[in-house]
Amino acid sequence: MARLAADPNRRVPPAVEFRNVTKRFEIGGSGQAHVAVDHLNLSIQPGEFVCVLGPSGHGKSTMLNMLAGFTEPSEGYVLHEGNPVSGPGAERGVVFQRDTVFPWKRVADNITFGLKARGIRRTEREKVAAHYLKLIDLERFARAWPHQLSGGMRRRVAIASVLANRPQVLLMDEPFTGLDYVRRDKLHRVLEQLWSEVGCTVFFITHDVDEALTLADRIVIVMHGKVTFEMRVPFERPRSTELIASKDAVDLRLTLLGHLSKALTEAS
């Protein structure tokens, strides 16, 4: 695949770049087009953890699907390390909102499934499985079937399955939606730990402002298929519940909520 001309002022290409990307869908064979993503520009640096906030139906998941290679942009380029994304690949792992752990594979086999597909030897796979099972605190469940686990446990397995494959970019589409606060908080810790170990770039879609403040280096608001607001999160890691409840964090939350509601009000 031809590499697009890089910005001469930048030495390392961004891990992820949306360059003037538009995505249109035809509405149910009616001939009418719906613009899900509209001339969107966004760059994400290697190792950066970016949370994308925004209302439902405003193009967040379409961005992720284009970046994953599940769908192509109608216009513009979606780039991974300077190369146009041309289809799904192991370098861009995806954690879905749905439960995608393969029920016909035991927990350890799920974690090493991608490695096996890439021809990694069994002894090496077993080491990786043991390592990640320890990280997600499911060592005793290596031989369990997924249906024997709780929802939160399966999410941990799904994340470990993707990260064990050592992707350069981790794409997460509301992966913790529907979980209670305690489980979600625990999973945030697991994700941060795994991310710090793997060092990959994270593109994380969420509706939850607190979740974004807990996890992100940078928060991007996407409304009507465009980036309408960006903000760096100035807090050190790990971010405790007390920190997220502090005045500084509350101010940031209000800023984000203000932008979300303002954009929605203008649209209506």
Binding site: A68, V94, A117, V162
Partner: peptide, 8 residues
């Protein structure tokens, strides 16, 4: 899609 993203 999940399997494809694992490189299968």
């Amino acid at each position: 899609q999940f399997a494809q993203s694992l490189g299968l």
